[in-house]
Design a protein around this nucleic acid. Structure first.
Length: 267
DNA sequence: AGATCGGCCTGGACGC
DNA sequence: TGCGTCCAGGCCGATC
């Protein structure tokens, strides 16, 4: 599922293909998660940035194209790397030298043209926490954020407020690495610092492997990420914990499947 | 205001 | 075989 490392991998391949191109037109299925796309025609693309799991392309005339891949969204260039289109094609951008297709099986993806920096219609982006791999992500402030919340730590991470870009996979991986129970509502300073470090490590390693592919996630060149074989807890229920050998268990937490070690990650 | 929960969406795995 | 049920899960809006 596209979380921060997957979105970053997409950004790196997409950015040089968008820079300086003009969007001559957009064909999009009518769906509520696509907004303002008619404003894209004639706009020239600048740099492509990432905030958490959001891709943000600068456009001229003070506009931005915001894209979220949701669960199954992917960008591909028509006719490249064997991609010709399929029933899950939801939107297409005509550029100077190529057609950029947005494919999305489950339709959780989102595309929007907004006034630059005005994210009021994208609530999660408007309230997004600091970038985990930037200096803005500060261990002391992270601990304060955890202490101020009454939520269990894992669902709180998934709100994107204490830190940007965590999804179900890397939240489970980081909590295991920091030995924190996903249901913990109180996380001490030392453990919060461990989690701060674990988040940065887990995401950095996954970016180096260009993300985790189970089925749908693909980079712009159609290739899979190489991180799936390195996951320690996610999808590993029943396997022995690599640290202590206790079989990993899976429970529901905040409506999400959650895998952890009952011994290493005691409450 | 913060926390919680169901809905969105589809394909695939699984059980009978 | 075929049908029904459940699960995957990021985000959003309604509700507590």
């Amino acid at each position: 599922m596209p979380e921060l490392p997957e979105v970053e991998s997409v950004r790196r391949q997409l950015a040089p293909r968008l820079l300086g191109r003009t969007i001559h037109g957009v064909d999009a299925l009518p769906q509520s998660r696509f907004t303002g796309l008619d404003r894209a025609a004639g706009r020239r693309l600048g740099e492509l940035h990432r905030r958490g799991k959001y891709l943000i392309a600068t456009l001229d005339e003070g506009l931005e194209l915001v894209a979220h891949l949701g669960m199954t969204g992917s960008f591909r260039f028509r006719g490249e790397h064997g991609w010709t289109g399929d029933p899950y094609l939801r939107a297409s951008f005509q550029l100077d030298d190529a057609t950029l297709d947005f494919r999305d099986v489950r339709r959780f993806g989102r595309l929007a043209i907004v006034d630059a920096g005005d994210y009021r219609e994208i609530a999660t982006l408007a309230r997004l926490g600091p970038e985990p791999l930037s200096a803005d992500f500060d261990a002391v402030r992270f601990h304060r954020a955890l202490a101020a919340s009454r939520m269990a730590v894992k669902p709180f991470l998934l709100t994107q407020r204490p830190v940007a870009g965590m999804g179900n996979i890397y939240a489970d991986e980081a909590l295991w690495r920091a030995r924190i129970n996903p249901r913990a509502r109180r996380v001490g300073r030392s453990r919060a610092h461990d989690l701060w470090r674990a988040i940065r490590e887990v995401l950095t390693e996954a970016i180096e492997r260009e993300g985790t592919t189970f089925r749908d996630y693909r980079m712009v060149n159609g290739e899979s990420g190489r991180n799936a074989g390195h996951l320690v807890v996610y999808g590993q229920v029943g396997r022995p914990c690599p640290r202590c050998g206790t079989p990993l268990v899976k429970t529901m937490l905040g409506g999400r499947g959650t895998t952890f070690c009952t011994r290493c990650q005691r409450r």
